[in-house]
Simulated scan of single mutants.
Amino acid sequence: MVKPISEDVHFRVLRVLNDRPGLSQREIAQELGVSLGAVNYCLRALVEKGQIKVQNFRASDNKLRYAYILTPRGMAQKAQLTGAFLKRKIAEYEALKAEIEAVKNEM
């Protein structure tokens, strides 16, 4: 059974592509610390959903490369995922802060 790609991975891919659309799939995978297959799967899903479009360009070494451009739909999705990401991380931070305080009180 294939594990679905998490919202966090989609968010992180959209975030990276927003800043650097010319990165290769391998570079995206290395930067995010996920597998190349996961990045490929995620990019295909984002293209199918109309959140990114793929454009060809020639790199300086004269090889064909791709640029992954966020569409208006992709920008909107990135904004939504950013809000959800922040909400999750703030909740994690608050829970961790409470746990640290409880451990301090035990000492």
Rank of each mutant, 00 (worst) to 15 (best):
A79P: 05
N40C: 08
L70G: 00
A98N: 13
F85W: 11
Q80L: 14
I69M: 08
I28A: 01
M75N: 13
A95M: 09
I52A: 00
A67T: 08
L14A: 00
S24M: 15
A38Y: 08
Q25W: 10
E7V: 05
N105I: 11
E48V: 04
Q51F: 10
I90F: 05
V103I: 09
E94V: 07
V16F: 00
N56Y: 14
I90K: 12
Q77I: 00
S6M: 07
Y93V: 04
D19S: 13
C42G: 02
N56L: 09
N18W: 05
I90E: 12
E94F: 01
E99T: 06
D8V: 05
T71E: 07
R20M: 06
G37V: 06
R88C: 08
Y93P: 02
K49N: 06
E27M: 11
K78I: 05
Q55Y: 02
E101I: 07
R65L: 00
N56G: 03
V34F: 03
V47N: 03
L23G: 05
M1W: 12
C42S: 04
R20Q: 10
Q30I: 08
A91S: 04
K53H: 06
L14V: 03
A59C: 05
E92C: 07
I90T: 11
F57A: 10
G22E: 14
A38G: 04
L96T: 07
V9L: 06
E92N: 14
L32K: 10
L23F: 12
I5A: 14
E48K: 11
L64G: 00
A76R: 01
R73H: 11
E101T: 05
I28R: 02
L86Q: 04
L43E: 01
A45R: 12
S6K: 15
L70K: 02
A79N: 15
L46E: 04
E7D: 12
A59H: 09
V16S: 12
L36Q: 15
L23C: 10
V9N: 03
P4H: 01
I90Q: 10
R65F: 00
A59N: 08
D19H: 05
K87R: 15
V54T: 04
R26H: 09
E106K: 09
L43Q: 01
S6D: 13
A79G: 11
I90M: 12
A91V: 00
T82W: 02
K97A: 15
A59Y: 01
K49V: 01
